[in-house]
Design a protein around this nucleic acid. Structure first.
Lengths: 192, 192
DNA sequence: AGTTACCCTTAAACTATGTTAAGGGTATTT
DNA sequence: AAATACCCTTAACATAGTTTAAGGGTAACT
């Protein structure tokens, strides 16, 4: 629980009363590997903060292939924001890649906190702005670079994550097949 | 100027005093076709609201090819948020595709407004959240769909924009060459 | 009104990436 | 300890997308 409070303090200090209010709306959950906290067809009820572990959020296409939209490790947030805010059925899955510990807040509780702690609007605005900037860089990569360039960029941008994830998951995130990633890795490892 | 106030009202009503404060920090500019309001190597000094006209934001790669990250038409915002907030040099260009009218606000003035009108934090949080959701859908398309599917999706999602833009610009946004878009369009127009 | 710049299309040759199939390795589960 | 599931790689073949070059059409500038 302390992890989240410290995380918020990194943006704007919260006083004791505000801290208490936040804590009153937060639920801690332990999630097993491969357990899902969101499945297609369900409404995304929680905004989740990862204290420990790692998650992937993905869509499944008509052929049954998964496409990773996002990973989330320690001190990162994960949710299908579209479903969370509209309360409509999600088309996404969120699944633990490792045994994990998360802090969850429900939509109504978050809205309650937004009203009672205005600085949370500011904090979440900055959080989402940073995520937006990151995502825009990813789009730029996707429309302008080859698979190899995107892979190298991923290794550079998320070196720790790259060590934790199987290559199949990285390939899915990059938008290439595991076989092609294997070919890329071979080329990169060869002299010249 | 009224256009922006009405736009804000669509999120949360502003009172007379707040309206006046916002207006005091806004500058109206008329932009000619092909005129740039941001160039690579410069700091993005303004958050711009499009009253009339249309813009593209793009990066130029080492081969000199442009890659469109975003379009912005009436009632949309455009800025390189990364550069705007960090005050670091941008790698992007923002250029008018049509003769345009925009309302601009400088970074320091926006921060001033955030402090004096807390509900602006809320409004811009919601704006950027919606843009994030949109962008996430685009990433999903990019990593999971063919050029043809992305083109059809673009036509569906931005039908009005598609009519205003030359196909070269759409191709650049989709991450394909104009020649390939031409081939796609031919296939789509052919019986079967 | 003429000229320039830009836009759209076509096609052939080429490159990047996907598909299918197979085998061996390693971690997880029973 | 065996069995299962998953992961990584390789290779032959198929498809998606690019490059280059060219021609004609239309909108913009002088």
């Amino acid at each position: 629980m302390q992890a989240l409070i410290e995380y918020f303090q990194g943006y704007i200090p919260l006083n004791a009363e505000e801290t208490k209010l936040v804590e009153s709306k937060i639920t801690l959950r332990r999630i097993k590997r491969k357990q899902m906290i969101l499945q297609e067809g369900f409404i995304c009820k929680h905004y989740s903060f990862v204290v420990q572990g790692c998650f992937k959020m993905y869509a499944v296409d008509d052929k049954g292939n998964e496409h990773n939209l996002q990973f989330a490790a320690e001190n990162d947030w994960i949710a299908d924001l579209g479903s969370f805010h509209s309360q409509k059925q999600s088309k996404l899955f969120i699944e633990a890649i490792e045994p994990s510990v998360i802090l969850q807040i429900e939509q109504q509780d978050l809205y309650f906190l937004y009203i009672n702690i205005p600085k949370l609007d500011r904090i979440f605005k900055v959080i989402i702005e940073n995520k937006f900037i990151e995502l825009q860089n990813r789009v730029l990569q996707n429309i302008s670079s080859t698979g190899q360039q995107r892979y190298l960029n991923f290794l550079e941008q998320y070196p720790k994550l790259a060590l934790r994830l199987p290559n199949t998951q990285i390939a899915s995130y990059l938008g290439i097949t595991p076989e092609f990633l294997s070919k890329i890795r071979k080329e990169l490892s060869m002299p010249q």
